[in-house]
Amino acid sequence: MPPVFSVTSEQLGVWIVAFLWPFIRMLALISTAPVFSEKAVPRSAKVGLAVLLSIAIAPTLGPLPAVPLVSAAGFWILVQQILIGAAIGFSMRLVFAIVQAAGEYAGLQMGLSFASFFDPTSGGNTMVLARLLNVMAVLIFLAIDGHLMLIMTLAESFRTLPISDAPLAAGGWFLLVSAGGQVISGGLMLALPLIAALLTLNLSMGILNRVSPQFSIFAVGFPITLLAGMGMLQMLMQYIAPFMEPRFAAGFAAILEFLSGLRS
């Protein structure tokens, strides 16, 4: 008589927990991380990717806390996985915010503040120039296999910060908030050459207007500023990749530092 395969409710609960908890962390990251969280990516593809990653990583996690899924401690672990996964994705999104900030600063100086459209990713109006630079940052991110490095960092997060019911330390959240200040400084650093050139041009036209009042500076000022801005932007394009690659590396290092800071 062939052996009968039987599964107890306790074994089934252990299997569900071993799959569900890493799945929640991965799904939270995919829902917030750049590239993966784009509106163009179907939801079924996001869930399917999280399922495949969970199946691949779950056997390597080791022993999990003996906490029932339907309990206060089990619910707290689920909340923790959501917070950790979303924070990892948000940390990498801060790097892309640097490029968007640079596009906003440069667009204002070029007179393109009116050239905006609805961005489904951010849920608001975004300047065309900021969107263009963001697309370039995404292409650079994919060219250096940043999406694969992000998945590898996620897998490493289960070793740095394993699944447990212990409370998360506040030091990690402080590091995440502190990283937000780099958005403004990094955006200004990237857009500074263009802003400086356009400021010099505006000062020159202001002096010209004072020297020759009959010269209609308002009629020709905008076309000159726009053309000069486009020329400077073309010169700036070749420096975006060397500027962004160290920022991506620093973003991955910041994620590991953030996870280490969450240890209680």
Rank of each mutant, 00 (worst) to 15 (best):
V183H: 13
G172S: 06
V177H: 14
G171F: 00
V177D: 06
T200P: 11
Q182C: 04
W173I: 02
L188E: 11
M189I: 06
Q214T: 08
A179Y: 04
L188N: 07
L208I: 07
R210T: 15
A179D: 05
A197T: 15
G186R: 11
A191P: 10
A179G: 08
A179T: 05
I163L: 12
G171Q: 12
G187C: 06
G187E: 14
L199P: 08
L208A: 06
P193H: 07
L194D: 07
A196I: 09
L203E: 02
S204Y: 06
I207H: 10
P167R: 01
A169E: 05
A169P: 04
A196H: 13
A170H: 01
S185D: 10
W173T: 00
G181T: 12
I184A: 12
L188G: 06
I163E: 09
N202Q: 03
S164P: 05
V183E: 11
S212D: 15
G172F: 02
L188F: 06
L168S: 14
A197L: 12
N209M: 13
L168F: 00
S212Y: 02
I184M: 13
P213Y: 14
L176Y: 01
F174H: 05
L199M: 14
L176E: 00
L176I: 15
F215I: 12
S164H: 13
V183K: 03
G187D: 02
G171C: 00
V183T: 05
A191W: 07
S164I: 13
L208P: 10
A169W: 02
N202M: 01
L198E: 04
G171K: 00
S212N: 15
A197I: 10
F215Y: 12
